[in-house]
């Protein structure tokens, strides 16, 4: 994992932050701080997937300066907390691999739909590659989004009938619909 320019909160250099606290009140403060740190870190580093078994490779869970690591099962319990707010999902049964959504899937889908609407790209088919790797979207936050996550985001939009996802062998794309809001005057 490459080192990133991230502004660590004070807790990151506080050694007991890496030990799950016995006092419930303190622990709740600790977990809250971890949740926000994980999301900030993933946003800054554009990390969509965390494999807990390789967690020590992330500076996030391993502060080598103070020689403190966050334990495997503690990470899982914090990620499970993030799951409750729609900010993470385990993608295997052993809960080792986790997708992280610093924006929830719903937030992502409205971001993408807004981008499409602003460019008047409804009713055309866009390939998934174009959407997140294309030159047009380099300044967008969803640029570089992992395909698995992207498909989940688009599926959410699809449920709102705002697009149709096409996943054929020869084309992997999406067609956005023009949604007309009818105002009753």
């Amino acid at each position: 994992m490459s080192e990133v320019d991230i502004e660590w909160p004070w807790q990151y250099s506080f050694p007991p932050f890496f030990t799950l606290q016995p006092n419930p009140e303190t622990r709740s403060k600790q977990v809250t701080a971890w949740k926000s740190l994980i999301l900030t870190y993933c946003q800054k580093t554009k990390t969509y997937l965390i494999d807990v078994r390789e967690a020590t490779q992330f500076a996030l869970f391993n502060n080598s300066t103070i020689n403190r690591k966050l334990e495997h099962n503690v990470i899982i319990s914090i990620l499970s907390e993030l799951q409750k707010t729609g900010n993470a999902t385990p993608i295997d049964k052993g809960k080792n691999r986790w997708e992280i959504y610093w924006h929830t899937l719903e937030e992502w889908s409205s971001l993408i739909y807004e981008y499409i609407s602003n460019r008047g790209m409804q009713n055309t088919v866009v390939t998934l590659y174009e959407l997140v790797q294309g030159e047009d979207s380099t300044n967008e936050e969803f640029n570089g989004m992992q395909q698995d996550v992207l498909i989940k985001v688009l599926r959410a939009l699809e449920r709102e009938r705002k697009c149709e996802v096409i996943l054929d062998d020869d084309i992997q794309g999406v067609k956005f619909f023009l949604t007309v809001s009818i105002l009753c005057v």
Binding site: F14, P15, P16, F17, F18, T19, Q21, P22, N23, E25, T26, Q30, N67, R68, K69
Partner: peptide
């Protein structure tokens, strides 16, 4: 002091 929330424990020393 831990129970009062004033102190945090570190088990990794």
């Amino acid at each position: 002091m831990v129970n009062q929330g004033l102190s945090w424990v570190d088990l990794q020393n």
